[in-house]
Write a protein that binds this DNA or RNA. Structure first.
Length: 528
RNA sequence: GGGCCGCUAGCUCAACUGGUAGAGCAGCUGACUCUUAAUCAGCGGGUUGGGGGUUCGAGUCCCUCGCGGCCUACCA
């Protein structure tokens, strides 16, 4: 795709600037205040200025986001990381030549810095009366539509930098995301947790049921897996004697991509010795309330056309009660597959005659229960078959001490009293191995080292996992996980942008470059 | 994996049953001493996602490929 007229015009301006001895990419800026500091400063001083400009000069810097040329006067807004400020370039104060230079060479998206005096325009906007202006960085590409911005979702994800520079809502999402994560760390740090880092590349994957990404480690001559979970490592640390550990990390699951799933996603897991799943439930509620307060300042969050109230306490009901309520089926009574299958079919669930009992149950949960759980709700006490790492309930060994948190119809968190009996753990692994042999690709492999760790003794422990991306979806009212991930996974475009060839004629503009280089293959990984 | 929808200028969008591809913004040239979606006059800008087919004629119909979105399947 050849360069367009706007790109060519800007490149020619770079040529002319270089010819005039002006570096379009100088190494340093000299700003003295941010735009928001400048405005605060002026508002503070204004009462003492008697309508005159602030005599103390300041220097601001930023991206040029608007230019209004009035002839002998030019108005322009520059935006930096804190806000925006209007430049007022007047011939009498900036000078004839510099004004003409600005009009000739400065375009939207360029970075500039301006010296001048703060004042208020006749229309009431705090601005800077510019005495000198310098180019900090020349932009070759123009911005998208100034009124509609960039709306094409594919481009917004592929070129997130353009999305961020044009759409303030996008910038806000990732600001909130950072605050959520900061709040989570603060909550845990203040309660004596140790933040740890465990392997991303694992020789045996575990801790969840999912297909892993596989890679090859040449130095070790061995296949490795990108972690699908850090659970088994964190529990080894509990065995080692730490009482409270947590990790916030990327997990990788080689499965479908949709509105709620990205193949790499951010997970919080924490483990607390001498706690059980009820203690964890309390902490979960407290943690999310804390994060929402810190990031949003409120517990009332809009969710599509609905509204979610995070005010605790949140309802807690057993999985049995929930499924009974929405389907009329009591899974503790209907324990055989044929009957459960028949009942599920009556309700219209998408199950097949060979669907195993726990899967039918999961289908009921997904189809009939989950969509109704808009307000935060804990479901607890799950069948053992669904939870190979959770401890059985002493009063009913068919169930495990496990809960999940649902909000806005999203599965947000998953937790249990950790299974610390090495023999039972081995039994569960063997069950998984059996399912695996039957073709369940997502059943967990046996991790004997983990059994060995449990044989050294693990205290009663409560564990917790939270999907950070989904929590951010909830708190920013986004229905798609891609909206809360800076660079979501997309299929590569088959053809490169072609810039290597298009920009070639301009390479003489690089200072000191004589020799011409061959055009590199810009995307070797996309070769068919 | 399956189904449906989409892809037109740098951006946001038009173009009836097939009949000369347009507008706004952005750009370029010029005017203008407080504008803020500045305004006014003029000008340029397109492989209509790629390829093929039908037709006198295709943005439009058909086939195919690519990318994206939604739904679905899978994801305890």
């Amino acid at each position: 795709m050849p360069l367009n007229d706007q790109q060519r015009a800007r490149l020619e301006k770079i040529r002319e600037l270089r010819a005039r001895g002006i570096d379009p990419y100088p190494p340093r800026a000299t700003r003295t205040v941010t735009t928001s500091e400048a405005i605060e400063r002026f508002l503070r001083l204004e009462p003492t200025l008697g309508g005159e400009p602030d005599p103390e000069p300041v220097t601001v810097a930023g991206r040029v986001v608007s230019i209004r040329d009035m002839g002998r006067t030019v108005f322009s807004h520059v935006r930096d990381g804190t806000g925006a400020l209007q430049l007022y370039l007047r011939r009498e104060s900036v000078g004839d030549e510099p004004l003409a230079w600005f009009k000739r060479y400065i375009d939207l998206n360029d970075f500039v810095e301006a010296d001048g005096h703060l004042f208020r325009t006749r229309t009431g906007e705090v601005s800077i009366q510019v005495t000198a202006v310098r180019l900090l960085s020349k932009a070759v590409n123009p911005p998208p539509d100034k009124w509609h911005g960039l709306t094409d979702v594919e481009t917004r994800y592929r070129q997130r930098y353009v999305d961020l520079m044009t759409n303030p809502e996008t910038r806000e999402i990732f600001r909130i995301r950072a605050q959520v994560i900061r709040a989570i760390r603060r909550y845990l740090d203040e309660r004596g947790f140790l933040e740890v880092e465990t392997p991303t590349l694992q020789p045996i994957y575990g801790g969840a049921a999912a297909r892993p990404f596989t890679t090859y480690y040449h130095a070790l001559d061995q296949t490795f897996y990108l972690r699908i979970s850090d659970e088994l490592y964190l529990k080894r640390l509990i065995v080692g004697g730490y009482e409270r550990v947590y990790e916030i990390c990327k997990d990788f699951r080689n499965e479908g991509i949709d509105a709620r799933h990205n193949p790499e996603f951010t997970m919080l897991e924490f483990y607390v010795a001498y706690a059980d799943y009820r203690d964890i439930m309390d902490m979960c509620e407290e943690l999310i309330v804390f994060a929402a307060r810190q990031a949003l300042g409120t517990l009332q969050v809009p969710w599509g056309s609905q509204r979610i109230d995070l005010t605790p306490p949140w309802p807690r009901l057993t999985l049995r009660e929930a499924i009974l309520r929405y389907t009329g089926i009591d899974f503790l009574e209907v324990t055989d597959q044929p009957t459960l299958y028949a009942r599920a079919r009556e309700l219209g669930a998408d199950v097949r005659p060979d669907t195993v009992w726990p899967r039918i149950l999961d289908e009921l949960l997904k189809t009939f229960v989950r969509p109704n759980l808009i307000q935060p709700t804990f479901l607890y006490d799950y069948p053992v078959a669904l939870s190979p790492l959770a401890k059985r309930k002493p009063e009913d060994p068919r169930l495990v001490e496990r809960f999940q948190l649902f909000v806005g119809g999203l599965e947000l968190a998953n937790a249990y009293s950790e299974l610390n009996d090495p023999l039972d753990q081995l039994y569960r692994f063997l069950e998984q191995a059996r399912d695996r042999a039957r073709g369940d690709e997502e059943a967990m492999p046996i991790d004997e080292d983990y059994i060995n760790a449990l044989m050294y003794g693990m205290p009663p422990t409560g564990g917790f996992g939270l999907g950070i991306d989904r929590l951010v979806m909830l708190l920013t009212n986004r229905q798609t996980i891609r909206e809360v991930i800076l660079f979501p996974q997309l299929r590569s475009k088959p053809e490169p942008l072609g810039l290597a060839e298009d920009l070639r004629p301009y390479l003489d503009l690089v200072p000191g470059v004589q020799e011409s280089l061959p055009t590199g293959d810009s995307s070797p990984t996309n070769a068919e």
